[in-house]
Measured scan of single mutants.
Amino acid sequence: MSIQHFRVALIPFFAAFCLPVFAHPETLVKVKDAEDQLGARVGYIELDLNSGKILESFRPEERFPMMSTFKVLLCGAVLSRVDAGQEQLGRRIHYSQNDLVEYSPVTEKHLTDGMTVRELCSAAITMSDNTAANLLLTTIGGPKELTAFLHNMGDHVTRLDRWEPELNEAIPNDERDTTMPAAMATTLRKLLTGELLTLASRQQLIDWMEADKVAGPLLRSALPAGWFIADKSGAGERGSRGIIAALGPDGKPSRIVVIYTTGSQATMDERNRQIAEIGASLIKHW
Rank of each mutant, 00 (worst) to 15 (best):
G194P: 11
L223S: 09
Q204P: 03
R176H: 06
R41T: 14
G90K: 08
I171W: 15
G242E: 00
S51A: 08
A132E: 01
T178V: 04
T112Q: 07
P105A: 05
L74I: 14
D33W: 03
L188I: 15
Y95W: 12
E102M: 05
L191I: 08
T27A: 14
G226C: 04
G76W: 10
T147L: 06
V157D: 11
A40S: 05
T261S: 13
A280L: 11
G242S: 13
P60A: 11
Y95R: 02
F149M: 15
S122W: 07
V82F: 09
A182S: 11
H285C: 04
L28W: 04
R59W: 12
R59V: 02
Q204W: 04
L137E: 11
I256K: 01
L120H: 04
V258I: 06
V106C: 14
S80A: 09
A148M: 03
D177G: 01
L223P: 03
M268D: 11
L74P: 01
G114F: 12
L38N: 05
D113C: 08
L282I: 14
P172H: 07
L28E: 06
S264N: 05
M153Q: 06
D83K: 10
G263E: 10
W208R: 02
P253V: 05
W286L: 08
C75H: 01
L49M: 13
P181W: 01
P65V: 14
T158A: 08
I171L: 15
K53H: 13
Q265E: 06
W163F: 05
A148P: 05
S128A: 01
T69H: 10
L38W: 09
A185L: 02
L89P: 12
E56D: 05
K32V: 07
A132Q: 02
E35P: 01
L136T: 07
E166P: 09
H94P: 04
T139A: 14
N168Y: 02
V157N: 04
Y44E: 02
R189Y: 04
E108F: 15
Q204V: 06
T147R: 06
A183V: 13
L205D: 00
Q204S: 09
Q37N: 05
R176L: 07
F64G: 00
A124I: 13
A132N: 01
V157F: 04
A230F: 03
A182W: 05
R220V: 10
E237I: 08
R241I: 12
L55Q: 13
R255D: 00
L219F: 12
R118M: 06
A170Q: 14
T139L: 12
L49Y: 12
R271N: 07
S201M: 15
L135M: 14
Q204K: 07
A40Q: 07
T262K: 04
A182R: 11
M66K: 00
L146E: 02
A170E: 10
F64M: 13
V257M: 07
E166C: 13
W227R: 00
E210P: 00
P165S: 07
R273Y: 04
E46Q: 05
V82L: 08
S51N: 08
I125R: 01
K71M: 00
R271V: 10
I256R: 00
V72M: 15
L100Y: 09
K30D: 04
S122C: 07
S264F: 04
T186D: 15
W227H: 02
A40F: 05
I206M: 13
R81N: 04
A235M: 06
V72H: 02
I140G: 05
S96L: 12
F70S: 09
R81W: 10
S51T: 10
V117R: 02
T187A: 11
L160T: 15
H285R: 10
L199H: 08
G90N: 08
V29G: 13
A276K: 14
K53T: 11
G39N: 10
T198Q: 03
A148T: 05
K109N: 15
D161S: 06
G226A: 06
G52I: 03
D99L: 11
C75P: 00
D113K: 06
G114H: 09
G263C: 11
T262I: 03
Y260L: 08
H285P: 03
L55D: 11
G194V: 07
G52H: 10
E26N: 15
K32F: 09
Y95C: 03
L38F: 10
E46F: 07
A170I: 09
M127C: 06
G251H: 09
C75Q: 01
G142Y: 03
G194I: 06
I243Q: 09
R271T: 12
E164T: 01
A148G: 04
W227V: 02
L167Y: 01
K53P: 03
P60T: 07
L100S: 12
P217A: 13
Q204E: 06
D36A: 15
P181T: 09
G242M: 02
D177L: 00
L188N: 03
K144A: 06
R41P: 13
V29T: 15
N152K: 15
P143A: 10
S57W: 13
H110K: 08
S233A: 06
T267A: 08
I229S: 03
Q86W: 13
H151C: 05
G239S: 08
W227Q: 00
D174A: 06
D207P: 02
P165C: 07
D212F: 03
G216R: 08
L199W: 10
P105E: 09
R92C: 15
G76E: 00
I278E: 01
D177K: 00
Q37L: 09
L197I: 05
G90I: 10
A133P: 03
L74H: 00
V72I: 04
A34S: 09
V31F: 03
F64E: 00
D129Y: 01
A246S: 10
V214K: 15
E87G: 10
V258L: 04
I243T: 14
E237F: 09
G248N: 14
A77T: 06
D155H: 01
A182E: 08
V106G: 15
A84N: 15
D207Y: 06
Y95H: 11
M115I: 05
L191A: 14
K144Q: 10
G226M: 06
P224K: 14
A132M: 00
K232Q: 01
P253N: 04
C75I: 09
L120A: 07
E56M: 04
G85F: 12
D36C: 15
N50M: 15
Y260M: 07
Q265N: 08
L218C: 05
E145F: 08
K71T: 01
D161Y: 05
S96E: 11
C121P: 01
G114W: 06
L196Q: 07
T116C: 10
I171D: 15
E46P: 00
L196T: 11
I256H: 00
L192Y: 14
G52A: 13
G85M: 10
E61F: 15
G239L: 01
V257P: 01
K30P: 03
